[in-house]
Design a protein around this nucleic acid. Sequence first.
DNA 1: ACAATAAAAACGAACGTTCGTTCAGGAGCT
DNA 2: AGCTCCTGAACGAACGTTCGTTTTTATTGT
Lengths: 203, 203
Amino acid sequence: MVEESKGERTRQAILDAMYSLIIEQGYAATSMRQIAQRAGLALGGIYNHFPSKDDIFSNLILDRHPFFEILPVLNSVEADSIETYVRTAAQLMVEEMGQHPDFINLLLTEIVEFKGQHIPQVFNKIVPMVLPLGQRIANLSGTTRNIPPLVMMRAFMGMFFSYYITGVLLGPSMPPAMQTEQTLDHFVEIFLHGILVEKENGL
Amino acid sequence: MVEESKGERTRQAILDAMYSLIIEQGYAATSMRQIAQRAGLALGGIYNHFPSKDDIFSNLILDRHPFFEILPVLNSVEADSIETYVRTAAQLMVEEMGQHPDFINLLLTEIVEFKGQHIPQVFNKIVPMVLPLGQRIANLSGTTRNIPPLVMMRAFMGMFFSYYITGVLLGPSMPPAMQTEQTLDHFVEIFLHGILVEKENGL
DNA sequence: ACAATAAAAACGAACGTTCGTTCAGGAGCT
DNA sequence: AGCTCCTGAACGAACGTTCGTTTTTATTGT
């Protein structure tokens, strides 16, 4: 039934093991012995599939970078106007991240422990996913300011990623006025209309 | 002349040493021996000042968290309208971070290696700095949407922090359309006026 | 001002542990 | 037989921490 060879299954088990261990305790604190145990093989067996601990991580991040899960979500949004798209996409993106509160660790671990050395490769896989998305959005109804679509996407991702991560990290420490049920809506409002109210006709 | 005792001086030297070593190579890769060497004392001497490696970091992050440098900058901005304030503050904040491309490591290290366990304490030191700032801004001229000032601040920080960090991390990998000289201005424009152009009088 | 004394700080070898990696050999399968 | 995969003991290096000892600094008494 499954076309997966034994070797490939073990390989995936090793990647799974490291993934979950990093989520739980970080990269540095994760030992090859723990990976072996969780993957269900002996210590030495790992080296039949990967030449080093670092190499396991490199494969992990290139296969399962958090963004590879977020972008399809943004791509799946159906909307007929830019405003609707933004509202729906922001909501979905935050929800999606909320369902995987873990995978942020992977992203940050790569930056901290590997100084972001995999970012170019990861980003090269992302760009082809993001370009058509920018195109799709540009074709929706609604007039936007004269800002390049990719810059808008960058701002969008940054804004709602920061919303999510500050919520997770600062959550209980935040003053009530900083985190309410409407805060996400306020972020959407700022992104769509800005913080300023344009004066209609003087007053 | 200086009222600093010998002990206090080496204490600071140890903190300095760990700070620079973390910037260069991360927390896990930094050994007590390296700290001792850079601080100019023997390995065992460290333990006259700190009970453990973790404890050095805890003191470091509570003394020198990146935000403690950014907030005074935002506080120093003189402006008579909200629009001017936002433009100036965004510019200054990005510049300030650009001059310390290093201290972001400290922030991320804390999250990755210590699971953000110091965040509540750090944040408690930050809140009193941020509340009066929100008050000051609320008193500037200009009409803003009905959004709590602290939420605006959260959005502001998130937006321009993300601008900075994506620039640093993704920089050379980004498509040209995503990173130009005007991109920061576009971010400011989005924050002030949103991406949408409100229709004036139908058409 | 100076010597006596206690406290603080520095030393560096040693300890026990854990780490990533290697390797000679054994299974299981075709 | 030959190949892929696995085993687990062993290796050497590096780690954080401890400890007995010495040196430096600060405080006191005179």
